[in-house]
Amino acid sequence: MTALELKRVANVIRQDIISMLAAAKSGHPGGSLSAADIVATLFFNEMRLNPNDPHWEDRDRFVLSKGHAAPVLYSALAEKGYFPKEELQGLRQTGHMLQGHPDMKKTPGVDMSTGSLGQGLSAANGMALAGKLDGKDYRVYTVLGDGEMAEGQIWEAAMAAAHYKLDNLTAILDYNGLQIDGKTDSVMCSAPLAQKWQAFCWHVIEVDGHDIDALLAGFAEAKQVKGRPTMIIAKTVKGKGVSFMEDQAGWHGNAPSLEQAEQALKELREEAKNLG
């Protein structure tokens, strides 16, 4: 897809996020919206996938380490054709497949159940190492939250990935600067992140996480790196695309009311018009 086409996909994903959270009356809009451009670029340009065969051995793998942002993943999977879009309206509801956090046993296309923060990178390491041991050429991608950087397991996994030279692994940090309790720098400062990941022997790329061209260039660069994993630090805005949600920690885990959802969808549809 072109960058413009990927922007359109990201806009559709953001509309899906708002609609499903309003229907569920619960969930996490802020970090789902901030990751939409990243996920759209991965699922509709970068990753080798087969929705007709979710368990295809040679597929690229994806781990949403910040599992509370499940709506962004569910929308991408539905748009990609893993299940009917109607399922999105069953988010967090009894009798439906879409749990509050990704469940690989219930949802086609989910490669790893996540939700307890800090564990996704370890799972991605295992997938990447298995690929190397099996002589496979698939790649593994994992999206992390910046609040997750306070988890010790992240740094253990960072050391392990470098030790095993997992150059088939790319981690993307959704660096929106906010978590449930406020600014990440105030809750538990993890800066300077680029220098820390470099010190852990990772190849580090810094991009604007809403600039599709920058994301495309970052993923292309990561594929050329040999002998070490890659961390793409993507600077984003929490709640991106909805004016009253942008850069507001209060929208970390609060679903919009029907009236708020209407306003949010109005803004996103206007953006869609501008994208042509």
Rank of each mutant, 00 (worst) to 15 (best):
T2M: 11
L6V: 14
R8H: 06
N11T: 13
I18V: 14
A22T: 09
P29L: 08
T41C: 04
T41D: 02
F44N: 11
R48N: 15
P51T: 04
D60F: 12
K66V: 09
G67Q: 09
P71D: 02
S75F: 02
E79N: 09
K80A: 10
G81K: 07
G81R: 07
R92N: 04
M104V: 13
K105R: 15
T107L: 11
D111F: 01
G115C: 10
Q119D: 02
N125E: 08
G131T: 10
L133T: 03
L133R: 15
Y141T: 10
T142N: 03
G145I: 10
G145A: 05
M149H: 00
Q153A: 03
E156T: 06
A162R: 11
K165N: 08
D167P: 09
N168R: 06
I172D: 04
L173T: 06
L178K: 10
I180L: 13
I180Y: 00
A191W: 01
P192K: 15
Q198H: 15
F200C: 12
I205D: 00
H210C: 09
D213L: 11
F219V: 09
A220V: 03
A222D: 03
G227P: 12
T230G: 04
A234C: 10
A234I: 11
T236D: 01
G239D: 05
G239T: 13
K240V: 07
G241Q: 08
F244N: 07
Q248C: 08
G253D: 11
N254A: 10
N254H: 04
P256W: 00
E259A: 14
Q260T: 01
E262F: 10
R269D: 12
A272C: 03
K273M: 13
